[in-house]
Simulated assay, not measured.
Amino acid sequence: MEYKRLGDYIRGVNVRNRELKVTNLLGVSISKEFMPSIANTIGTDMSTYKIVKRRQFAYGPVTSRNGDKVSIALLDGYDDAIISQAYTVFEVIDHKQLLPEYLMMWFRRPEFDRYARFHSHGSAREIFDWDELCDVMLPIPSITRQREIVSEYETLTNRICLNNQMIQNLEATAQALYRKTFVDNIDKENLPEGWRMGTLSELAIITMGQSPNGETYNTNGDGTIFYQGRTDFGRRFPKARVYTTSPTRFAKEGDVLLSVRAPVGDINIAPHNCCIGRGLASLRCKINAQGYLYYQLQDLIAVFNVSDDEGTIFGSINKDDLYNIEIVIPKKEDISLFESQVSIIDCEIKLRDSEINKLTELQSLLLAEMGINN
């Protein structure tokens, strides 16, 4: 299919919030989504901010220090919003020739990010300016075919969102069950029969991570999957990105992975045997109750927050402090009963997460095919 110049299909928009009618302040993330702004706007003249409307785009021209991603997004969750003057707003001229949703799919392709970074220029900071954006070449099939492609992609997106919502509900249910059983109305001065105070190391086998030589790292799948810290953490399971040919400390499949450097206390579950770096510790329950251990660690967030506040400038927790965290240790029968209940929930969460990974792979495949099969 013949490639077309994007600038022939889009135009810049520069409408300011002069009358202060729009109050919904958003930013644009490198994940290519609009998000609520966290900027301090006290005393800021909001009348100079730009208005973006539904099915219009905004992007940040600065590409340096952006993780090789272009911050660009299509507004579809609101009728309108305001954004910083630093963003460029634009729109598709004729929706009968080019669907905004199809164009946004093109912007999500990693090839687009690589193109934008390559064509960025500047000394102090690199810019992918409006002229460069207009010079992007892309295939523009018939509007009917565009609708088909967008429909396929949105079907996958909706299924991913549904699974994420289900996981969130399941996790909330499991955490509520944990708190009802082991936290609410429990007096540490008068524990139930068979319960006692103890330390985390009495309940779990703890392995502190150790980073291999950096020269052994690779991203082509050579060696053992390696997690240095929380960088690769997901909602519950980390994503494999880096490998090492000289692994040092290990976590087994199912172990809880705990961030021991800023921010301390983030947790995931190892989906496979892996090597762990100094930013992580792995924990395995001594009584075969990994679900219980996972939710107990989630409930220790207040303890980990203290570690962040009182630690170094980076925040960390050392081996001795981690081993000696004081916890309530219920009797084994109570833990086992909870484990039998929560394991059903956790299995469903794992299945939903696996489906999300497969759907995400299908999305990536669909984006890749935009450049060759239209």
Rank of each mutant, 00 (worst) to 15 (best):
G7N: 08
G371F: 15
R5E: 14
I143K: 00
R196K: 15
T231E: 07
Q97M: 08
P100E: 07
E2I: 08
Y3I: 15
R230I: 03
S84R: 07
D232F: 12
R278S: 04
R108K: 14
L359D: 10
P110M: 11
D131H: 11
N40H: 07
F250K: 14
F304Y: 04
P36Y: 07
H272Q: 05
Y87R: 04
T155V: 09
G198A: 14
L170R: 10
K53G: 12
I206V: 02
E193T: 11
I143E: 01
G27H: 06
N158M: 11
L191D: 00
N40D: 15
M104S: 12
Y243D: 07
S343Y: 06
L322D: 11
K332F: 11
F237G: 09
F90R: 09
S307L: 01
L280G: 05
I287L: 03
T231C: 10
I10N: 05
D94H: 07
N357L: 08
L362N: 08
A251M: 04
D79M: 05
Y9P: 06
V62H: 09
N324T: 08
R18M: 07
I140N: 03
L74D: 05
S47M: 14
D113C: 12
R159P: 05
E33C: 15
N318T: 05
D131R: 15
I186H: 00
C274S: 10
Y227H: 13
A270Q: 10
W106D: 04
D80P: 09
E101P: 08
F250S: 10
D299L: 03
L362H: 05
I313N: 04
V264C: 03
L75I: 05
V306E: 13
N185I: 00
V28I: 04
T360Q: 12
I287R: 02
T41F: 11
I372L: 15
P263K: 13
L280R: 06
T312L: 04
I287G: 00
T173Q: 13
T312K: 04
E215R: 14
N288G: 00
G43Q: 15
V264Y: 03
S340K: 13
I83H: 03
I160D: 04
P212D: 07
E215V: 12
N373K: 14
A174I: 01
S37T: 15
L156D: 09
F112G: 11
L25W: 09
E326Y: 06
R241I: 07
L103R: 06
S211D: 11
Y3C: 13
G7M: 11
Y294N: 00
R18L: 04
S364F: 02
D266A: 14
F237A: 04
S354I: 05
I93M: 06
I30F: 03
S364T: 07
R159T: 10
P139A: 02
S123W: 07
K332M: 02
G122Q: 10
K252W: 05
R159L: 14
I276K: 08
I205K: 14
G277Y: 02
S354A: 08
S142V: 01
P192Q: 01
N190V: 02
P330E: 00
L203A: 07
N324I: 10
S120C: 09
Y294V: 00
P139R: 04
